[in-house]
């Protein structure tokens, strides 16, 4: 699975007073980000955690997921500090449960839906300010410092994964800053992933849920998720759009 190079120019990095960073001393690692922009990191081992060699993804076994279970949604809202009132059309929803019935066979399935962290993300394509971006490890995020709230990305996302914040907020989680006038969606719990953990929904699904979610590096053939993907049939939602989502579903 090929990940295109990080194509977002980090405009601000070149303006910064680098003196501070030289003070740290130690080995110098230089990463060329795009023409004319260089990122410097100090201290021996690479200090940027988003590894371009990785691609984070998820596999959801729909057979294990049940419609009465909401563990993933509850865990996400607690972790990231959002809440959606039942039936509200405007409240933020980072993840939701969807129940489906096959029209012909009557088979009923239930599954969690969130940002699918597309490889060719339409939200990134349409964003006029480069606020929507993909990290080198495939996680798609919104830079709220740059988001102007135009909501193009909400229109472009085929999975209805993004929400706009209408009201002023207070008491946000320090790991998930969010504010009025910006768009947001599932961050794949990037703060947990960077600390070596896995998303809150996956944790909750494993402990209080039905153990239907698997998280890991799609590029590592030795990861549990890659082994499971190799063994079992799975699909990406709306595969016809060729977005190559990082979230895949089996037994759907």
């Amino acid at each position: 699975m090929k990940l295109p190079a990080l194509n977002t120019p980090l405009r601000d990095l070149s303006e910064v007073d680098r003196r501070e960073f030289f003070k740290a001393g130690g080995a110098v690692a230089t990463v060329a980000l795009s023409s004319g922009v260089t990122l410097m990191a100090f201290g021996g081992e690479a200090s940027a955690n988003a590894d371009p060699g990785k691609r984070w993804g998820m596999l959801i076994d729909v057979n294990k997921c049940t419609s009465d279970c909401n563990a993933c949604v509850t865990a996400c809202s607690k972790e990231n500090g959002w809440s959606a009132e039942e039936g509200s059309e405007t409240d933020a929803q980072w993840i939701r449960k969807v129940d489906l019935t096959h029209k012909q066979t009557g088979r009923e399935v239930s599954l969690p839906m969130m940002c699918q962290h597309c490889e060719d993300a339409p939200c990134v394509d349409v964003c006029p300010t480069e606020a929507s971006f993909k990290r080198p490890d495939g996680i798609v995020l919104v830079d709220k410092h740059a988001c102007i709230g135009c909501r193009f990305c909400m229109m472009a996302c085929p999975y209805k994964a993004r929400s706009f914040i209408h009201e002023p907020l207070t008491d946000q989680k320090s790991n998930a800053p969010r504010g009025q006038g910006t768009v947001e969606s599932c961050t794949l719990c990037v703060h947990r992933v960077d600390a070596g953990g896995q998303p809150a929904c996956v944790d909750a699904c494993g402990t209080t849920g039905n153990g239907a979610m698997l998280f890991g590096d799609l590029n590592d053939p030795e990861s549990d998720i890659s082994k499971a993907l190799k063994k079992f049939n799975s699909i990406g939602l709306r595969d016809d759009l060729r977005l190559n989502p990082g979230v895949r579903y089996s037994n759907l």
């Binding site: 980090l10 990095l13 910064v16 955690n49 988003a50 990290r135 995020l141 830079d143 410092h145 992933v193």
Partner: peptide
């Protein structure tokens, strides 16, 4: 300036 620089490193590149 320090905060602005480091926020880009953390958010865009995951440098924690």
């Amino acid at each position: 300036n320090l905060l602005k620089h480091d926020r880009d490193l953390t958010m865009r590149l995951g440098d924690r």
